[in-house]
Design a protein around this nucleic acid. Structure first.
Lengths: 348, 348
DNA sequence: TTGAAAGCGGTACCAT
DNA sequence: ATGGTACCGCTTTCAA
């Protein structure tokens, strides 16, 4: 009953014994190194395949001091944004002979600290992190950055930590999103901002302010967080305070969903009564009651760049403070009212 | 510059040297084992904390032969369904002192085989897998099942492999979904079925057939796959073949999205012209143009049960062929037309 | 209470 | 071309 035996229980030593060879010949044969006769190599490979030999990675990692693994930490599972990035990181890593160990922090800073340490304890070669709280965890991040394994930040950076990383140009994106609304003729453009401890939220807010200031329009910002409930709360506060709102620039798509809820519960319509632009481009945007206009980050490119940067740092091919910034892309759908205007214009 | 030193570079031996102790005293102190004086323990703990000592998990795993890790394989990133399950698996695992290593197969059977072997090579204690192709990979799965590390299947099973696992009662769910449509008065109920190599797809089809047969209605099934594009194709084929369609039971939510596309591109409406029910309950269903009625799997419960089953198997607390089947839940929204009928009824 | 030593399964470097 | 051996950092067993 061959398959009753323990999986991967075969060791080099065992194979060597089976074949009356030294452990070293087996190792060499398996690694395609020279120093073994063709005959021996054939026998070894054949036997290894037959017994389903798999090297014990713990042993290899122990002696090599590196697991040949990129450790990736991201804030949360279940958002396509992160899934897309992680997927492309993995693709590049695999193509270069590395495997990837993911860990997500569930948006909790303490969990993130723990995950970072666990990955390091597993001897990952480099750490790629999109931190749930870059400044709150700056001590750990700094510690990693000061260590012998490269730290690559992605999506969000920590003020005061000069680590390499890959980011989206959130400020520019936010400015352009806001300009888009202003260009459509809206004057009362409000920004629902994300949590101030995240660089992405701060930068988007700055971009909004840049655009409003340049247009000579009054700024109005509510800081509400990044979630759907936060969006509802923020929008309710705004309306209850009697603020005139022609258009909303939401710092994140889920926030925009919250806005949708509140708008419709008041019997108002998007974009006729309130225009709306989000940030990130969630899944199924096409099938929404009102398809959402968004600034989309280039997720695939960000993931690729992140992985490549890590590999380049490992190989010493780039300076240790390399930062890569990629532009966001405006996707115009119905929620901003642009299509309606275009129709009106052409229709009469 | 303390933080310039290598992260986790400290070893037991080093600490022992620093403190003029034997490696063993340090180890015992760190593990809270008895056999060390309080004084020694204090010194060790203090020093360890100071130098940020972290045990090298590769070394520990090597000697223990187990990584104290549950390996989890799931088909694809970026669907909330999997994210939810994985999240709850992790929660239970952590609460019981295990960590989790995820790997996703990108829906590709060969990738899955590779990931299974990699996880085993990393000495995971048990393997939890939702296979991309249970029957196609039955040889590997059987091999794992015959090994000394428990295999727990979840969501989909392999015909011909008596492995323990946690599943949703797809057949029953599909039957109830179909009955729901029949109960609303639809006679021409069509099923867009998923790929026949997946137990979930087969079972849902059977459930549909059960319901139609019991109602004495003619069955009509198109096997189209599980994706959005598949749904579009299936629906187009159906309409172009001139089939009368009053209601569609889609085997998976993405398929239902495809149906929505085709229906609206023909100028028809949901549910007035075609009623629709999906399976799985995707994110943001509430904000869709036509909120989707679905059979939802109990994701959190499935994840918990899967993790618990693995732990129970490891502890020898349950028979090695334990299977757990959980019921699906109908969520009625607009797409099936139930709400419209209710309104009509009460309205006059 | 404390320490020495063997060994987990590989790899690297030395001999033969 | 082949084999011997010393590690990697930790746990386990046994001795002091």
């Amino acid at each position: 009953m061959e398959h009753r035996q323990a999986a991967g229980n075969q060791t080099l030593k065992q194979i060597a014994r089976d074949l009356n060879l030294s452990l070293m010949s087996v190792s060499r044969a398996l690694h395609g190194q020279k120093g073994v006769s063709e005959e021996t190599r054939r026998r070894v490979l054949e036997h290894a395949r037959h017994v389903h030999y798999r090297p014990n990675l713990a042993a290899r990692t122990l002696v090599r001091r590196r697991a040949q693994v990129l450790g990736v930490i991201f804030p949360s599972l279940g958002q396509t944004f992160w899934a897309d990035i992680v997927r492309s990181i993995e693709q590049v890593a695999k193509a270069n002979g590395y495997t990837v160990l993911f860990a997500h922090a569930g948006d909790r800073a303490e969990v993130e600290r723990e995950e970072i340490h666990t990955l390091l304890a597993r001897q990952v070669d480099a750490l790629l992190v999109a931190s749930s709280d870059p400044e709150g965890n700056i001590d750990v991040l700094r510690q990693v950055h000061g260590s012998d394994r490269p730290l690559v930040l992605f999506d969000r950076y920590a003020e005061g930590l000069n680590a390499p990383g890959v980011f989206c140009d959130d400020r520019d994106g936010a400015r352009r999103a806001t300009e888009h609304l202003i260009g459509l003729g809206y004057r009362r453009v409000v920004h629902l901002a994300g949590p101030a401890n995240l660089s992405v939220a701060r930068d988007r807010r700055r971009g909004y302010e840049d655009a409003m200031r340049a247009a000579g329009l009054p700024e109005r910002v509510v800081e509400c967080g990044f979630g759907e409930e936060a969006g509802r709360q923020g929008m309710r506060d705004l309306l209850e305070a009697g603020v005139e709102v022609e258009a909303v620039f939401a710092a994140h798509d889920p926030v925009a969903f919250g806005v949708m809820d509140v708008v419709s519960e008041r019997g108002l319509r998007i974009p006729e009564d309130v225009a709306l632009v989000g940030f990130t481009d969630v899944d199924h945007a096409r099938h929404l009651a009102v398809p959402l206009t968004v600034m989309a980050q280039p997720t695939a490119e960000m993931g690729e760049a992140t992985a490549r940067l890590a590999l380049d740092l490992l190989a010493g091919r780039v300076p240790p403070d390399t930062r890569i910034v990629l532009p966001a892309r405006l996707i115009v759908r119905a929620s901003c009212g642009a299509q309606r205007r275009a129709q009106e214009a052409s229709g009469g």
